[in-house]
Nucleic acid binder design. Structure first.
Lengths: 224, 224
DNA sequence: CAGACATTCAATAGTTATGTTGAATGTAAT
DNA sequence: ATTACATTCAACATAACTATTGAATGTCTG
């Protein structure tokens, strides 16, 4: 029953492996997470990640070959972006598995950040209780239009793309709880990482707005 | 703003990359898909994949180190199994991205199998119509207990683990449409691949039983 | 305890990935 | 055209991964 090395089945697995191999490099994952926030030029990516332009370009081409990112030309620049939501779902799944299973993860995160709060998300019940008591800032990091279409009551909206510039809008007095679209969305993860690096105490809501809605909890809406 | 090479952010990405690197090898992906069907000994995996026992053992240890598979001792044997459903979701996400984006994929699959039908799933509507006309065999490849708890009317149940031995139960006269738990379940993919290799005409249902249920379609149940 | 067997370890050679260099495209302005 | 600039290419040294071999470990059976 065992086929030769070039059995069709093996060839298919080989393709899967090629995709995975692309993600087997910290720099490339960082690039994808960056591009998940919006399209960027090679130089912009290089600057943000600290890699040289040539190296960045090569990584971007590797990602493009695997179909994970797409490129378009705009004048002198070539703008890269992630190819689709499935790619975001993929690295989210990667994140979930890594966080669940790699015990080292916890040690690294806890070593650098606050001892008490790791990457564990906050439950909806906890959020409601503490928000009512005024103990936390609820932060919606989705784009403004999605926020307008419906958000958790009392939540502040700062899209992830503007977070860095608007850190001054936030207070360090209360813990910040960030949320985005759902368990397969990276925005909240990114926001928490950025906020902690900036000295804030931050965690993310378990799930996202769709799950909040499903749980039958209240939603605010901006009238147009 | 650019931190040194050992910034906490980079360290986190490094962990993600470690997990992904594990999947960057066709043999290891094949192992995971095998173990997704049930726990197996090193030798059993080696035999099925055609790798030597030593090589298989090393791959299994790599997977274990990354938390993707777990091991337990049973007498002389060490039985490996996937660590959890998140792992299955991860490789399913990998599969989705690869199938969507890697153009090569199609060429490989179409080259080996029937020209007309690739990997595109069959819609619920198509399935219903053609099943009523007696044009297709609907195949439920989930474990027997899940089948008993609810299945598509008229579906035949052959759990994936028994499929190879029970190929004789199926007819080559009609196309076979396989389904399992849902878009994040690998069973149907596996079944279609196996059936095609055995000379059957086979495709998979888009989604799975939960989606069927959600769409408000009829479900049969075995009485206990 | 001795033998059989499943699995793992250690060392090695061949292969592949990575990041750096400096040069080569290709596009937009002068 | 010529210049400036963003990106890519090509080639190399270094590092990491892979499969093989034969030996070592640990568990059951008689």
């Amino acid at each position: 029953m065992t086929m030769s090395t070039t059995s069709p089945k093996r060839a298919v697995f080989e393709e899967f492996a090629k995709t995975a191999k692309c993600l087997g490099h910290a720099g490339r994952i960082e690039i994808i997470e960056l591009l998940a926030q919006g399209e960027r030029s090679v130089e912009a990516v290089a600057e943000r990640t600290g890699m040289t332009v040539a190296t960045t370009s090569q990584h971007l081409q590797t990602l493009k070959r695997a179909g994970l990112v797409s490129a378009r030309r705009d004048g002198k620049f070539i703008l890269y972006s992630v190819s689709g939501d499935e790619v975001i779902a993929l690295i989210s799944a990667l994140r979930v598995v890594t966080e669940q299973h790699a015990a080292e993860m916890d040690r690294i995160v806890r070593g650098y950040f606050d001892k008490r709060d790791g990457m564990e998300p906050v439950s909806r019940e906890d959020l409601l209780e503490r928000a009512r008591a005024g103990l936390v800032t609820v932060l919606d990091v989705r784009p403004a239009d999605e926020y307008a279409a419906g958000h958790i009551p009392g939540a502040t909206n700062i899209p992830l793309s503007e977070l860095e510039q608007r850190l001054g809008d936030l207070t360090k007095d209360r813990e910040i709880i960030a949320y985005c679209r759902g368990p397969y969305c990276v925005y909240a993860f990114e926001a928490v990482a950025a906020l902690r690096q900036a000295g804030f105490s931050a965690r993310r809501l378990k799930g996202g707005l769709p799950q909040w809605r499903t749980a039958g909890l209240e939603i605010s809406r901006d009238l147009t």
